[in-house]
Design a protein around this nucleic acid. Structure first.
Lengths: 126, 126
DNA sequence: CATTTGTATTATAATAAATAATACATAAAA
DNA sequence: TTTTATGTATTATTTATTATAATACAAATG
């Protein structure tokens, strides 16, 4: 999986990394049980520090997206639950995005179309 | 309009402020041409620094959500355009949210319902 | 002229982000 | 058993961000 970082972004590197891996899982470019690169290898490839990658992995682990074994490294979690825990967070994020889109002139119909187009790229199955 | 800040949030105060004003505009709690509180007054009400409020106002101004006049203070912009400029940004934000939701088990149908519920609270009209 | 507006300036403190260099615990592999 | 590769913990340093603070300034209204 190709990961590209924007060094001039206001989004921290570890967060960019975390976001791209989450999208990779949802789109199926990273399959369940698939092994992620080691922190050292990924840090070397991206030209960033080991601890920055580790921070992204630790975050993904805490959020339940990946499972980490001392020796086997990091793997994509086979399945995740607890949708209810993040329901409120999802609603808050979505409310802000929809508010911004509404003011920019994007109506519900256009928004739903955009959502459909994005959903069609998501292949993650439970 | 009631604004509540979470001091223990990882979201900066000026960003929380900006977000709530954006939502206020979209939901109609802040009407077009309506005057916002002065930076000093709002800072006093919220118990935060003047420059923190000013940073939020400057950001809202730069994004086109409000218009600022030296003497008259800050007002909600009558109308905003340039939807295309922010189209890519919208898609990126939405992609991440949908990816997370998908992994958490939220399917397209449930997501669309949530969107509809949020949209029903948005009264902003062009 | 006086007042109120946003804003610019400068300083300071606290926190976060990123890098760096090591070291450690673990467990598979040789 | 020894070696090796894994994530992780630790400590330090640098840089950027955030928030506060105290002023001062430009502009425009009354």
């Amino acid at each position: 999986m190709v990961i590209t970082l924007q060094l001039d972004s206001e989004t921290p590197l570890y967060e960019q990394l975390r976001n791209q891996i989450v999208i990779g899982i949802a789109t199926g470019r990273l399959e369940a049980q698939e092994r992620l690169p080691t922190v050292r290898q990924l840090a070397g490839d991206l030209g960033i520090n080991t601890m920055t990658v580790n921070k992204a992995y630790a975050l993904l682990k805490q959020e339940g997206y990946i499972v980490i074994d001392r020796r086997h490294g990091a793997k994509v979690s086979p399945r995740t639950q607890n949708a209810d825990v993040h329901a409120q967070q999802l609603e808050e994020q979505l409310q802000l995005i929809i508010a911004q889109a509404t003011i920019r002139g994007v109506d519900q119909s256009a928004f739903q179309s955009l959502c459909s187009r994005i959903f069609s790229k998501m292949t993650y199955q439970h």
